[in-house]
Amino acid sequence: MANLGSPKKVLMLCGDYMEDAEAMVPFQALQAYGLSVDAVCPGKKSGDICRTAIHQGSPHQQTYSESRGHNFSLNATFDEIDSSTYDGLIIPGGRAPEYLSMNESVLDLVKDFVKSEKPIASICHGQLILAAADVVKGRKVTAYPTVGPMLVAAGAHWVEPETMASCCVDGNIITGAAYDGHAEYINHFIKALGGTLTGSNKRILFLCGDYMEDYEVLVPFQSLQALECHVDAICPNKSAGDTCPTAVHDFEGDQTYSEKTGHDFKLTANFKDTDASSYEGLVIPGGRAPEYLALDQNVIKLVKHFMDAGKPIASICHGQQILSAAGVLKGKKCTAYPAVKLNVVLGGGTWLEPDPIDHCFTDGNLVTGAAWPGHPQFVSQFMSLLGVRVCF
């Protein structure tokens, strides 16, 4: 459940080719927790988009690769913001910080947050902006390793990241090496804003598959981890440490969504060894994976266990194809991606039109959403069923 008091306000500093996950995961996670988040970019206004980049490494590469991510919609205008009205600042990484670090208005904005001692969370290459703003002298800071020399030159106490999930906190500055560390990074930020968690430590299971939608696994997975829940991801015929390739689904002027390759998502547990009774909730991402997962009888058995036991289930987009195949939608009110309406109706569910597309619904133990823009509601409603809450 999200915070019910007066919401904290957070500013996110965006730019073209910021890293896809490093923008959207904290943006939607913080909204799910009940915070108000404004995303701005110099030279752009509310409603404009920033193109994002998917960065990921490989043991076969000397550096990370880059491919196109989602189009990220801004919801505020840079030239109209008043930094004094915000309680914290988020700086995603990627390539955007290279040019943002040369913008005097950006540097002045960062200096305002440092002077006011408000929390700043910066990840990956975002620390280039901190270095350019001359706010890291004497501070312990980590980042993506190639940023280290610049931070040392700027007078920071460089903390070499042991893994790409490493984070560092020094006063009001929170830094992370890469999106792998979002759970700790976001957790530190909400606590720096005065947030407290109740009902955490829940055990949650994610039902994954090849070409599930990138955001629809990463955002809820890391959002729940940041709330100190134990979250496992499994996929039929795969084991802990294996990866599932994901798909970036977006609307770019065609009659249906486009698809691009997303991040490789690492599984945390073995499907064949999973004891469903040890988990308190189930999440089913959308994308293309549900088409084939719905044909797997072991998947069907697992989903039926959660529904028969009345445990919270959250399913989004095409995930409802699995619910339909499992026969668990009978008597349930449910939404989904509109093209999945036939599956819902034939599966005995009562169709709820997702208007607007970010509208999510809860019916008993079931939370359903239509697509990734609805993640703030989707995660918040699932938190409510689990009894997990962030309070400020």
Rank of each mutant, 00 (worst) to 15 (best):
residue 83 S to L: 09
residue 81 I to E: 06
residue 86 Y to D: 04
residue 48 D to G: 03
residue 308 D to C: 12
residue 315 S to R: 04
residue 323 L to C: 03
residue 125 H to C: 06
residue 381 Q to M: 13
residue 357 I to Q: 05
residue 319 G to A: 10
residue 183 A to E: 09
residue 197 L to H: 04
residue 252 E to P: 01
residue 178 A to R: 04
residue 37 V to A: 01
residue 102 M to F: 07
residue 345 V to R: 00
residue 81 I to C: 09
residue 117 E to S: 15
residue 243 T to W: 00
residue 228 E to P: 00
residue 2 A to G: 12
residue 173 I to R: 03
residue 325 A to E: 09
residue 186 I to Q: 11
residue 313 I to K: 00
residue 26 P to S: 11
residue 302 L to T: 10
residue 204 I to N: 05
residue 207 L to Y: 00
residue 268 T to Y: 09
residue 370 A to F: 09
residue 175 T to Y: 01
residue 232 D to N: 14
residue 162 E to M: 10
residue 258 S to L: 08
residue 381 Q to K: 14
residue 155 G to C: 04
residue 67 S to K: 14
residue 94 G to E: 03
residue 192 A to Q: 06
residue 149 P to A: 11
residue 375 H to N: 07
residue 188 H to I: 00
residue 348 G to R: 06
residue 32 A to P: 03
residue 266 K to E: 15
residue 30 L to E: 04
residue 157 H to F: 10
residue 228 E to Q: 14
residue 342 L to C: 12
residue 173 I to Q: 02
residue 341 K to D: 09
residue 47 G to Y: 11
residue 74 L to S: 06
residue 163 T to G: 09
residue 161 P to S: 11
residue 363 D to E: 06
residue 108 D to V: 08
residue 52 T to D: 09
residue 66 E to P: 02
residue 195 G to P: 09
residue 116 S to C: 14
residue 274 T to I: 15
residue 39 A to Q: 04
residue 56 Q to G: 08
residue 247 A to F: 06
residue 72 F to G: 00
residue 57 G to M: 13
residue 49 I to N: 11
residue 376 P to Q: 02
residue 114 V to Q: 08
residue 316 I to Q: 05
residue 217 V to Q: 11
residue 108 D to T: 15
residue 289 A to W: 00
residue 187 N to F: 07
residue 139 R to F: 03
residue 84 S to H: 09
residue 18 M to P: 00
residue 161 P to I: 02
